[in-house]
Amino acid sequence: MMRAVTLLRYGGPEVLQISQIPIPVPKPNEVLLKVHATALNRADLLQRRGFYPPPAGASDIIGLECAGEVAQSTRNWASGQRVMAILPGGGYAEYAAVKSDHLMPIPENLSYEEAAAIPEGWVTAYQLLFYIARGKAQEKVLVHAGASGVGTALIQLAKLKGLKVAVTCGSQEKIEFCKNLGADLAINYKTESFKQKVKEFGGADIVLDCIGANYFEDNLDAIRLDGRWVIYGTMGGHQVNQVSLRGMMGKRISLISTTLRNRSDEYKADLVGSFIDDGILDAFRNRVLKPIIYRTFPIEKIAEAHEIMEKNENSGKIVLKISN
């Protein structure tokens, strides 16, 4: 048996509880991990409320990433090897069964807690910026929620590859935080017009948008000719009214929506492979890139961790320590 976070019912953070459940049995193409740490993602809050069920066949335990050690040797992974992984579910538990080719070795200089802050946020950011938006050096990218887990990864990846970065944030503290990470322009969306600031910046070749409906018209104004606009979240609503298709056509905008969780296993394996082959793990090893951790909580404090994320208090990732 193992400890895991389960739900009393759908609802607020108070529905999260620690339960004893069976250890998962890995399938032939899976590896059993002893999980030392995981991290929170916005999708976790939606799943807790019943709005984002796991894909068919995936664990119904919340958690899209983890870091730990291989519990049982396989052909490609040795027992005790330190690894981190993207998951379709199952991260909030002492053990997780993971697709073998969704694993990555943890750079030697990173702790389990630091490693837990990487897989979902950084692989998502890499997918958004390079797989989908095809970002190139010298282009300008607008990143919404710049201080989020994905946002902090996007800032660093964009600067690593020579792009210029504008971000939106909700406080002066987060503005300074994002500038210190390398953002060329940081805009407080509560006090300034981000579309005007981005237009003064020269416009955005790429918009990476986790807000959705509330920012639709301003994004349309801020994006440049032939821009790529990727929607990967709807924190600001999902219903858009009176969209100007002519405005989009006039700028020849590519509007793309995406998720990662319900992608095929083959797509995720290819993405993880590209993430490694592109030297991203080496950049962590050399401290050129760094996972940003806001706070670390023991598994027993899971409700408090969810409350902080719901209030948008965090800059960077909230990590959950599962075991020593």
Rank of each mutant, 00 (worst) to 15 (best):
A4F: 03
L45N: 04
G135M: 09
F177H: 14
A97R: 03
I231W: 00
E114P: 09
V319F: 07
V243N: 00
M2Q: 14
R295G: 10
K179Q: 15
I23P: 02
G68H: 05
A4M: 07
K321Y: 10
N214Y: 07
S323P: 05
D44C: 07
Y112R: 06
A133W: 00
S264M: 02
G227A: 09
S73T: 15
P107H: 04
K317S: 12
V25T: 09
P26N: 04
E14I: 10
A117I: 13
V5N: 07
K27G: 05
A283I: 06
I276N: 03
N109T: 12
I175V: 14
D101Q: 11
A67Y: 00
A115I: 07
G80V: 11
G237S: 00
S111N: 09
A71P: 10
A305Y: 00
G121A: 15
W122L: 04
G90C: 03
N312D: 08
E69A: 13
K27A: 09
G57V: 12
Y92L: 02
M84F: 10
I86N: 01
A96S: 09
G149C: 08
V35G: 09
Q239H: 12
R82I: 13
W122R: 03
A269N: 10
G237H: 02
A183Q: 11
E300M: 05
D205N: 15
L142W: 02
G91K: 00
M309K: 05
F51I: 07
G236C: 08
M84Q: 01
Y10V: 12
G170A: 13
V141S: 06
I322F: 07
V240D: 00
E310I: 01
V70E: 06
F216L: 10
I302A: 08
I253P: 00
L157D: 02
E120W: 01
K190M: 05
I155V: 13
D184H: 10
R3E: 15
V288G: 00
D221T: 12
V70D: 06
Q20C: 05
R42Q: 08
S193M: 07
E113Q: 15
G236L: 08
I106M: 11
R295Q: 15
Y189D: 12
W229F: 03
I256E: 01
M1W: 06
